[in-house]
């Protein structure tokens, strides 16, 4: 998650605070904003305070004045703990809190059960299971380094290096697979089971919903004067993240591709290049870098970027993975 160890808040003078998330807090006169200002000099959508990898930032969206520490700003700037933000008639303080305070250890923990009933837990990622002495968990009859488990955003993925059966379905080596609590993986005749796992904090309540099917159930792209906010619900609760202009455009093309394609279909790279970068030819690398960053953005809010943004086998096209009947909304 962003800025590990800390949570960030916008504090109001009346003792109320709102948490700053990667989806951001939109400030302005519009009733749809997260923080309302009644100042007539402010725009309907004046500014967005959001979180990225390095900490909180403010992006100016409208024409009214936005000041940080008494200094007017124009585009996008980082915010610091204790910083004073002025938007219209609002004066807000940026505050940092220790995320672990009262919340316990929020790292992901997984428990595996071997065929003989042995239970093993791991919280490091990657975690290798196989027959070699240097595997993190040794399962005697298995080939060395047979399976590599990775914990991503509170979810578990396995990369098999040999053929494996997952809940009865054969999976070829090199194909990463998302796992569920209760999944059984067998190499040859010998299997292991994922007993439980996820972000199991000590001392604090957890509510880890099961996620049966890959893909998003609900996606909404909210266009802002600069960039947009992507709202996604996959397995658990809805998550939102602020996307800068080009990332926003990229997602918009995937969610509303040119006909006859529909949301959820693979969109050829040529279409993406022309619509996101204009007529100027753009190399594959540029697209891959953008895709990599978008996946990281999704991972940061606990979604699975690799699962949601899928490249076609052999490359050449990308899609936003949606479940059957998923609701897609661009506004």
């Amino acid at each position: 998650m962003t800025a590990p160890g800390f949570t960030w808040w916008l504090r109001f003078g009346d003792g109320v605070a709102k948490r700053i998330t990667p989806g951001g807090l939109l400030i302005g006169r519009s009733p749809q904003c997260d923080v309302l200002t009644r100042s007539p000099t402010s725009s309907r959508r004046q500014a967005l305070v959001y979180l990225d990898e390095s900490g909180p930032r403010i992006a100016v969206m409208g024409r009214g004045t936005v000041a940080v520490g008494g200094r007017a700003i124009e585009l996008d700037e980082p915010l610091e703990d204790g910083g004073r933000l002025e938007v219209g008639d609002l004066s807000l303080e940026v505050a940092r809190e220790d995320a672990n305070e009262g919340a316990g250890d929020r790292s992901a923990v997984w428990v595996l059960e071997t065929a003989d009933g042995g239970l093993f837990s791991f919280s490091t990622s990657p975690f290798r299971v196989g027959g070699a002495a240097d595997d993190d968990l040794r399962v005697e009859p298995w080939p060395e380094h047979a399976l590599t488990f990775r914990s991503i955003g509170g979810r578990l993925e396995v990369e098999p290096h040999v053929e494996v059966s997952i809940d009865g379905a054969r999976v070829a080596p090199g194909e990463p697979q998302r796992l569920r609590r209760g999944s059984t993986l067998a190499v040859g005749e010998v299997g292991v089971r994922i007993v439980t796992g996820g972000e199991l904090g000590t001392g604090s309540t957890v509510a880890l919903e099961a996620d049966a099917e890959p893909g998003a159930r609900y996606v909404r792209l909210e266009f802002l004067p600069r960039g947009g906010r992507l709202h996604v619900r996959a397995g658990g609760d809805e998550q939102a993240i602020y996307l800068t202009d080009r990332r926003c455009d990229f997602i918009a093309v995937l969610l509303r591709p040119p006909p006859p394609l529909a949301a959820g279909d693979f969109v050829p790279d040529e279409q993406l290049w022309s619509r996101v970068w204009g007529k100027q030819p753009s190399g594959k690398k540029t697209l891959h870098v953008l895709l990599h960053r978008l996946r990281k953005d999704l991972d940061r809010v606990g979604l699975d970027g690799n699962e949601l943004l899928e490249r076609a086998e052999g490359g050449g096209a990308t899609r936003f993975v949606l479940r059957d009947g998923a609701h897609v909304d661009l506004d």
Partner: peptide, 21 residues
Amino acid sequence: RTSDGSVLGTIGYMAPEQLQG
């Protein structure tokens, strides 16, 4: 309704069947 595989509660106090979803 809560779907099978969901883990809800607080580790250390939740029953094994809760922890296993």
